[in-house]
Design a protein around this nucleic acid. Structure first.
Length: 468
RNA sequence: GGUACUCUGGCAGAACGGUUAUGCGUGAGCCUGCAAAGCUUAUACAAGGGGGUUCGACUCCCUCGGGUACCUCCA
């Protein structure tokens, strides 16, 4: 499998048959997660599921940043503690992402639970004379890491001007960044340099190395983390260990709205809760995978609607396959084979999910065509069903199972309706159809038989205009 | 200003230097008691502008331009 590496700006091969270690920078838990977070995390979720489907054992670590100025500010604003804020939003995180069918990571380490590791890490840096203490905290000395800027392709002297933040006179160099901030206010921990809390970047270095080792396979996150977060992580980690940090850096593009990045300051943030409530997990996942992961994707109702239509086709196809009962099998082995190869090839070519989805939907279209012509054989259906299921599992798309009782009830109502239709009592027949619709069951009348499907309930479908 | 990414038909989005991408949408038709869904078929003569290399470029090179992101809050 080939993946584009941000650091070397080239495609790198990864051996799918090997076990892999992946670290994903998660969220800072001070507010609700939004669709931008969802995209990054869903991309990695699918990457992981694909690799696992190929037999690779994946160690997948995703952190929570649970100590940070934003959390503290929020706590102050709400007259509560930072701890309560981060707990609340971690809980919220899991609600959102379980709802999006994201598989739980191997571990979700938190900064606050790794203070010891962080302190030891900083001690090492100080011992190596790469970090130094001032009266404000401990700082990483950028000039001690000659390769600083290699990830974001920035030149140190061009960064020097860095006018955005007020210069801390205590620092030797304005570019130096805090690994430990001294403070008397909660949350604080004791350290050799005094009470305080860790800087933003150090937790990821300490925790990724703790769980995955000094040199692991893939490190990822949103594009906006390239600088300074990942740049600083590399500087700290490689200075500390002396070996290459991550082998591949994978960065996911932003979700934009009308071409603009989603951000709190613009006020155009779409919370997962809101979007999930309106569109459901499957449509959102399709949306997030509809473009190449490295490119930005523009959030729009139109695009979600398009994915909703596609999802309906996938659902219909599923039920067509369940109901297929013809004996006349065609030689569809080749279609299934072809789809499988195309799907896998697309993903192995820098994880091109759009192309993978194309082949997924091509098989669906082909199947629905056969079904409409009453040409879908039983064996063919089984083969196609298995392949579609495999792809859905990788993509994290789920069609809810239906219970036996429900099925019996549905079959009974359909038979009733057929009877009424035969007797040309269409009003009664339509009443039954309405009743089924209320159960989210839709009927599809083919020439020879009527099949049914359980449609996922999607709020947005019945609204003319979705509130954004 | 610097760096990175990006610019394909109404929208989304591919492809090896040489064939119709494909999907959504839209038009027409088929199916149906009606509908929904589905199907069939038609539809786009597209490549940010300008140069160049080439027998031939969406694909390579140069140049100009647009957009977005980052330049210590950020997935």
């Amino acid at each position: 499998m080939k993946l584009q590496d941000t650091l070397s700006k080239s495609e790198k091969n990864i051996d799918v048959s090997k076990n892999l270690k992946i670290y994903l920078c998660g969220v800072t838990v001070y507010d609700e997660s939004h669709i931008g977070h969802a995209r990054t995390i869903i991309v990695f979720d699918v990457l992981r599921k694909y690799l696992e489907s190929k037999g690779s054992k994946i160690e997948f670590i995703q952190n929570f940043t649970d100590v940070d100025d934003k959390i503290i500010n929020r706590a102050n604003a709400e007259n509560t503690t930072a701890d309560k804020i981060s707990k609340k939003y971690i809980e919220n995180y899991f609600k959102d992402f379980d709802g999006l069918n994201v598989k739980r990571a191997t571990n979700y380490p938190k900064a606050t639970e790794h203070i010891d590791e962080i302190i030891k890490f900083i001690e090492k840096l100080i011992k190596k004379d790469i970090a130094y203490a001032t009266k404000n905290g401990v700082y990483f000395s950028v000039s001690k890491f000659p390769e600083y800027g290699k990830l974001s392709k920035k030149k140190i002297d061009e960064l020097q001007s860095g006018a955005r933040i007020e210069i801390d006179e205590q620092k030797k160099d304005p570019l130096d960044f805090a690994v430990w901030k001294l403070s008397d206010n909660e949350p604080v921990w004791d350290s050799p340099w005094g009470k305080g809390r860790p800087g933003w970047h150090i937790e990821c270095s300490a925790m990724s190395i703790k769980y995955l080792g000094e040199n692991f396979d893939i490190h990822g996150g949103g594009r906006d983390l390239i600088f300074p977060h990942h740049e600083n992580e590399i500087a700290q980690s490689e200075s500390c260990t002396g070996v290459q940090f991550a082998k591949i850096w994978m960065h996911v593009g932003m979700v934009t709205i009308n071409g603009e990045k989603m951000s709190k300051s613009i006020g155009n943030v779409k919370s997962i809760k809101h979007v999930l409530d309106n569109w459901g997990a499957n449509v959102i996942r399709l949306f997030c995978l509809s473009g190449h992961y490295s490119k930005p994707i523009d959030y729009s109702e139109e695009l979600l609607k398009e994915n909703l239509i596609k999802w309906r086709q996938a659902e219909i196809c599923h039920y067509e396959l369940i109901h297929a009962n013809k004996e006349n099998d065609l030689e569809n082995e080749s279609i299934v084979e072809k789809t499988r190869t195309e799907f896998d090839n697309a993903l192995e070519d820098d994880f091109n999910t759009h192309r993978a989805l194309s082949s997924f939907f091509q098989l669906i279209k082909e199947t629905n065509r056969l079904a409409a012509d009453e040409k879908l054989g039983r064996n063919d259906a089984e083969n196609i069903k298995a392949e579609l299921k495999r792809m859905r599992d990788v993509l994290g798309l789920y069609i809810p199972e239906i219970t036996k009782n429900e099925k019996q009830e549905i079959d009974r109502l359909i038979m009733d309706r057929e009877q009424h239709r035969k007797e040309k009592q269409f009003e009664n027949a339509d009443k039954i159809r309405d009743k089924l619709n209320e159960m989210n069951v839709e009927l599809i009348d083919h020439k020879e038989k009527t099949i049914w499907m359980r449609k996922e309930k999607i709020k947005a479908e019945h609204q003319n205009k979705i509130e954004n």
